[in-house]
Design a protein around this nucleic acid. Structure first.
Length: 229
DNA sequence: AATGCCTACAACCGCAACGAC
DNA sequence: CGTCGTTGCGGTTGTAGGCAT
């Protein structure tokens, strides 16, 4: 899996998971030369990757300001709210979650939320609670594909104790209100003022959820800093 | 302890938009 | 104004790790 050639045309091109060495090369190169035209960047850095792959790796994983790990309840609510407004506009939604990438939000939505939307109505609340520490009501009417006000009381009670009563209320309201658009409103500008009001990172969004990054971006960054310019 | 299944996430793919020439 | 290269986006897939049996 490590050195699988990508295509007969370019047997040198690597695909699949990035190695630590590749990450370091990319980080070093960008630290010294900045981001640029990704195809030539990949070549100049000596990476046997497509520019596209390098860009994705950088944006979703290596950027110093990227936040990975647990999505906080606040972020979950924001995602729901913005998804209700804009649908699958992941990059747009990601702009309102500082440090989060569209890919992460998309994955989060598909794995944590969408699966519940697809659950039959009889899905037991306790299983629901087990599936996620915090999650979303699944009480949709068949065929309407709507996350809505059916958030089980159990689920709300399963919410972390740190969650304030007011947060709870707003969460209920929000989930009650939630109805993902079946089509994107071409004219969604009337939402923007609200969304932009959300743009500033909430104070309680901390970096602590990043603590479990795999082989710590801190490590990589300290390594590349040691390498210097 | 072995296995099969499920979940979460990293990465790839295809397409559309955009800009330079 | 058409072509080409690049970027950005959203959907999909592959796989590692966790969990249940």
């Amino acid at each position: 899996m490590d050195k699988k050639p990508c295509s007969p045309q370019d047997p040198e091109l690597r695909k699949g998971p990035w190695t630590m060495e590749e990450d370091l090369i990319l980080i070093n190169y960008i630290a010294n030369h900045g981001e640029g035209v990704w195809n030539s960047l990949a070549k100049a850095a000596g990476l046997k990757r497509t520019g596209k792959s390098c860009r994705l790796r950088w944006l979703n994983y290596l950027r110093p300001d990227v936040r990975r790990g647990n999505i906080t309840p606040e972020e979950q609510l924001l995602i729901m709210e913005l998804h209700a407004k804009w649908g699958n506009r992941w990059s747009k939604i990601a702009k309102h979650l500082p440090g989060r990438t569209d890919n992460e939000i998309k994955n989060f939505w598909r794995t944590r939320i969408q699966k519940h939307i697809k659950q039959p109505e009889t899905f037991p609340a306790h299983q629901f609670a087990a599936a996620d520490q915090v999650c979303i009501g699944h009480h949709q009417a068949a065929g309407t594909s709507q996350v809505c006000g059916g958030m089980a009381t159990d689920m709300i009670e399963a919410y972390p104790p740190s969650t304030s009563t007011s947060q709870m209320c707003s969460m209920r309201d929000m989930i009650d209100d939630y109805s993902p658009p079946t089509t994107i409103h071409p004219n969604h500008n009337h939402h923007l003022h609200h969304a932009e009001a959300l743009e500033a990172p909430p104070n309680n969004l901390t970096m602590e959820s990043n603590a479990e990054a795999y082989w710590g971006m801190e490590d990589i960054w300290s390594m590349q800093l040691l390498n210097g310019d």
